[in-house]
Amino acid sequence: MTTLTAHTESSPRTGKIRLANVIRSEWIKFWSVRSTSITLVAAGLATIALGMIFSAVAESDDVEGPAALLSDPVDIALGSIGLTEMIIGVLGVIFVAGEYSTGLIRTTFASVGRRSRVIAAKAVVIATGVFAVGLVAVTGAVAAGQALYAGSQATVAVTEVWEVVLGTTLYLTGIALIGVALGFMLRSTAGGIGTLFGTVFIGPGLLTLLPESVTDAFMKYLPSEAGSAMMSRVSDPELLSRSAGYAVFAAWVIGLLIVAGVLVNRRDA
């Protein structure tokens, strides 16, 4: 039964596994499953489409309601970004927790040996995908918005727009990484998504119910509020400065990934 044996020239037995091997593997995994790849692309397209709709609606004079309160054309064009964030965050959770639910994670860990490499590779893959798609989507939404919403305040300096586009894209990327970290920590899709929504998307809203002195002190350090500082064009006294926003948000992302790494290495898989 010679077929059992691999051709020796095609099966290198020397050399260690490099992170690049694991990244390639995770890249194949990400793009070979519909639920992950389609979600990412759909989120990008939805961001552009909704941005165009919001901008077109805002352009018509007889608008009343929330959209009328927004006068910044960039804000209008990115009006659906909250939805995009949620989808991207869920995507990050599913990319990891889905592998726990099938049990594939055991195969992955045993095949790779060092588990932190798996976390790193998944983080690199989803960050790359979300950054690329996010950059296109956010740029597309803003550009379409600029074209469609020719309101009086429509002229916005290009450098300012790019700061918003970059901040928004990086925020989306970070949210995906928080999803990845939560997926590794909680090992369950439901638990990961629940925690993500509770802490990142809904939690801050609940905090506003606390006394103002408390919320003023803590609120701006939450990932979502640090993210708002990254994404806003005009500085807001209730938020951190843009650079402080980047630093705080990065600390959240890196911190959560490190906690995930510690837990994953300590626990049985």
Partner: peptide, 15 residues
């Protein structure tokens, strides 16, 4: 794809 993703972790060729 399942096997390919596994193979590349260990530098095993797609063939």
């Amino acid at each position: 794809d399942h096997l390919r993703a596994l193979a590349v972790t260990n530098g095993i060729p797609t063939s």
